[in-house]
Design a protein around this nucleic acid. Structure first.
Lengths: 344, 344
DNA sequence: ATTAGCTGCTAATACGTATCAGCACTTCTG
DNA sequence: CAGAAGTGCTGATACGTATTAGCAGCTAAT
């Protein structure tokens, strides 16, 4: 019951009749120094180790070696609590998979509840050799400090403006959005609308950039740069602008608009096409599958983890990587009906 | 770019014109020793700390204090890889929640792929202050070593036979099963069958124990102590034994049996009631909601985490806790039809 | 005027490991 | 037979922190 005093190398040394240094050399000497320990001695030490079940204390080890084969996973927002957990799990899956493959363990530092700071009082983050940062809301001050500091990290999701280049793996939303616009145009849409923010997080800006880049000025009939507006109101604006297709950044808005439209007897996509910019986790809703693009969350997380390990192990230079987002067919984008056309 | 030599207490001390010891005392002195540092000095040191963003190295800290406010989570089976991840996530949610509330971080040690040993070569587990063990397949040798050792741990799920009492939090399956049996009897069932293992894991034994305890000998018409047998075969046995109600341990078996029965034109629960022993994660299958009992996975995980912290912080004695499993109504248990009764 | 007690600090040490310099001894070389 | 080279090992030290013992200098009490 009473703590049985943990076994140390000194104990092993005593039992084997050698010095602590010898034990350490047996355990992890360089080929060079290893050659200077005769087989007999080595086997004697190894036997004692086997018999006692000794394992080196990773803490002491880390202290002297500096590395621990542990990666931190930092999230500002609560990662797990079951409510909206599904946002993080695909990322965690990916990180875990890559970490396992590379022989690393994971230290979870999730800000469940109390907004947590990386540079807080009790930051145990540094136990890890480096860390992956997840989350939508980034504290730019902290990011800048990380960039300036020597602690290896990689962000999942593109980040700018941190007083230096931020290593990241993100989704390539701009071309993915542009591709959807092209697809809408090829269906014959000439009156297109946008609902969503056009500034703020990088991912948001990218969507708007990809959109505005490929939509001709004449084709953009209206933009609503906000989210969460009452759907009926939004719909009124869209219809009075004569839009035949609307691009929406938030799934929730898309669902609301679709619902409002259906209530008015409009048919999707005949009377109005809806495109969502990015597949959202709970997209497996009943019935309707929105046309969108896939965000390769697991692949992003894997790539970020591998990048982090490169930085940890080889002090690799900052990399910035955007992964391709595959279009998702869905059933909310189609040709505008001639009726709608005439209505205009 | 070149590693900017991590900040240490010595650096802080130098900048503030005091000794390293003073810095340490400012950071975490006892009220006693704190009272001996004048406010002026303390503020000077604190200012330097704030300006530099210094944080104490948790590794060195752990080395001297022995505690780290980190809990390990060990799983034998792969925890994350998305395939069957859903088994572990509720547990992880619960552990994470409790750990956060108690001010602990989580070190994930998941055996993805290579069957991992707790006592391997590279055991980073000891970095944690204690650990929660998850997983169905336990290595009893290792469990015994854990019990014998001084490393605090708590198992999720009841465990026996480890050369000593194993601290655990499990589900109280026996009475939950018994309650379902009583319920079946109150519906009028007098010819009951059992499909599933009756030995092996503790959780399995508990189910069988709860079942056999409350089913009268005359009422148990047949038992099939195996899983995965062809459903038609199973159904033949059940029907020829005249069973009106069958208790199944594996959801997969229940689904298969239900499907086979429906194919033959039998109605569930009129012609045959099916009770599953424990809600399985993916139970939200289309259509059919099986009568069963709820396994409070998150609560189990929370309780296990809290128990672990008690052991870590106060060296609390071994506790063994079984949590109540609420019955789940479902729609596969009902009164046996008179037709079925007559048929016999 | 001595001592006892307080205040403000610091030196020294321990924690468990990795690693390097080097000691004592043997064997080989010229 | 002196020196070089090799062998088998150990002592000392560093890593960054917490903590204890204790040193000056000062004040208050006897």
């Amino acid at each position: 019951m009473a703590a049985v005093k943990r076994l140390t190398q000194r104990d092993i040394a005593q039992l084997a009749g050698v010095s602590q240094a010898t034990v350490s050399l047996v355990l992890n000497g360089t080929p060079l120094s290893r050659s200077r320990i005769p087989t007999e001695t080595r086997e004697r030490v190894e036997k004692v180790i086997r018999d006692t079940g000794y394992v080196a204390d990773p803490v002491a080890r880390k202290m002297v070696k500096g590395l621990n084969r542990i990666l931190g996973v930092f999230t500002y927002e609560p990662a797990f609590p079951s409510g909206q957990a599904d946002f993080f799990t695909p990322f965690l899956f990916g990180i875990e998979e890559a970490a396992q493959a590379l022989g690393y363990d994971l230290l979870l530092l999730t800000g469940a509840g109390q907004q947590r700071k990386i540079f807080g009082d009790n930051v145990r983050l540094r136990l890890a050799d480096g860390c992956v940062i997840l989350g939508r809301k980034f504290d730019n001050t902290e990011l800048a400090r990380l960039v300036a500091g020597d602690f290896p990290f990689v962000a999942v999701g593109r980040r700018d403006d941190a007083g230096g280049p931020v290593p990241y793996v993100g989704g390539d939303y701009a071309p993915a959005t542009a591709a959807l616009v092209e697809r809408a145009k090829s269906f014959g849409h000439r009156r297109i609308a946008y609902v969503g923010l056009n500034e703020g997080a990088e991912s948001t800006v990218d969507r708007w950039y990809g959109f505005s880049r490929s939509v001709g000025e004449a084709e953009l009939v209206t933009s609503i740069f906000e989210v969460g507006r009452p759907p009926n109101e939004t719909l009124d604006i869209l219809l009075s602008a004569g839009a035949t297709c609307v691009f929406v950044t938030e799934l929730a808005d898309a669902i609301a608009i679709e619902h409002a439209a259906r209530t008015r007897g409009l048919s999707i996509p005949d009377d109005l096409s809806i495109v969502v910019l990015g597949n959202h986790i709970r997209a497996e809703e009943p019935g309707r599958r929105f046309t969108s693009f896939a965000i390769p969350r697991e692949a992003m997380a894997r790539a970020a983890t591998e990048m982090l390990v490169r930085r940890v192990e080889h002090d690799a230079p900052v990399e910035q990587l955007l992964l391709h987002c595959e279009p998702l067919e869905g059933d909310t984008l189609g040709a505008p009906s001639s009726k709608t056309k005439k209505t205009k």
